[in-house]
Computed example of a mutant assay.
Amino acid sequence: MTVWIASTNRDNWEIIRKNNIWGVPKRNKKSIERSKPGDKILIFVKQETVEDTIIPSAITAAFEIASKPFEDTAPLFIRPPSMHGDESFPYRIRLRPIKIFPEELDFKALIPKLNFITNKKQWTGHLRTAMRTVPDEDYDFIMKASETPRG
């Protein structure tokens, strides 16, 4: 079993949550093709600014991959403003929720303990692709952190 982390924005996170589906652009076809049913996937949402408020990057949920990758060009996901063309995120997998975190996990607070983030100062480079693998220990740490009350 492989553990993945999937990078998205908040608009597409809502689509993932409501539809239990993850999609990647054409340029990320090879990474999604490496995923298999039974693999786990964490959802990472990027930092965004809404009006004058900065919403920090976060981990929002854990899913199990429930299907083999498939192609579907039906409109579903929202193309981020930074992406050019008419990308529809056509390479997709179905998901089964393991846990939707009641409170998002502030990603920056997790960085010191995450093994896949080797450059702690320039950590965003580790999340520039749509999906990448992470060690089991990082998955376990994130799942445990999701159980700890914050306040």
Score class of each variant (00 low, 15 high):
residue 1 M to F: 13
residue 4 W to L: 08
residue 7 S to V: 08
residue 8 T to L: 09
residue 8 T to E: 07
residue 10 R to H: 09
residue 12 N to Y: 13
residue 12 N to M: 12
residue 12 N to K: 10
residue 13 W to K: 02
residue 13 W to F: 15
residue 14 E to M: 04
residue 16 I to E: 02
residue 19 N to S: 12
residue 20 N to T: 06
residue 21 I to R: 01
residue 22 W to Q: 01
residue 26 K to T: 12
residue 26 K to I: 13
residue 30 K to W: 10
residue 32 I to M: 02
residue 33 E to V: 08
residue 33 E to G: 07
residue 33 E to D: 05
residue 35 S to Q: 07
residue 36 K to F: 12
residue 36 K to D: 03
residue 39 D to C: 09
residue 40 K to C: 03
residue 40 K to W: 12
residue 40 K to F: 09
residue 40 K to L: 10
residue 42 L to F: 02
residue 45 V to Y: 07
residue 45 V to P: 04
residue 46 K to M: 07
residue 47 Q to R: 14
residue 48 E to A: 14
residue 48 E to R: 15
residue 49 T to M: 10
residue 50 V to F: 13
residue 51 E to N: 08
residue 51 E to T: 10
residue 53 T to C: 07
residue 53 T to A: 08
residue 53 T to W: 13
residue 56 P to E: 01
residue 59 I to M: 00
residue 60 T to H: 04
residue 61 A to N: 02
residue 61 A to L: 05
residue 62 A to H: 06
residue 62 A to D: 12
residue 64 E to L: 08
residue 64 E to Y: 09
residue 64 E to K: 10
residue 66 A to Y: 03
residue 69 P to W: 06
residue 70 F to L: 07
residue 73 T to P: 03
residue 73 T to M: 03
residue 74 A to S: 13
residue 74 A to E: 12
residue 76 L to I: 04
residue 76 L to E: 03
residue 76 L to P: 02
residue 81 P to Y: 11
residue 81 P to V: 11
residue 82 S to Q: 11
residue 82 S to V: 15
residue 83 M to R: 15
residue 86 D to M: 12
residue 86 D to R: 13
residue 86 D to C: 11
residue 87 E to A: 15
residue 87 E to S: 15
residue 87 E to K: 15
residue 89 F to Q: 08
residue 96 R to D: 13
residue 97 P to K: 08
residue 98 I to A: 03
residue 101 F to N: 04
residue 102 P to W: 02
residue 102 P to K: 10
residue 104 E to N: 09
residue 104 E to F: 05
residue 111 I to W: 00
residue 112 P to I: 00
residue 112 P to W: 01
residue 114 L to M: 01
residue 115 N to F: 00
residue 117 I to M: 03
residue 117 I to E: 01
residue 117 I to D: 03
residue 117 I to G: 01
residue 122 Q to A: 03
residue 122 Q to H: 07
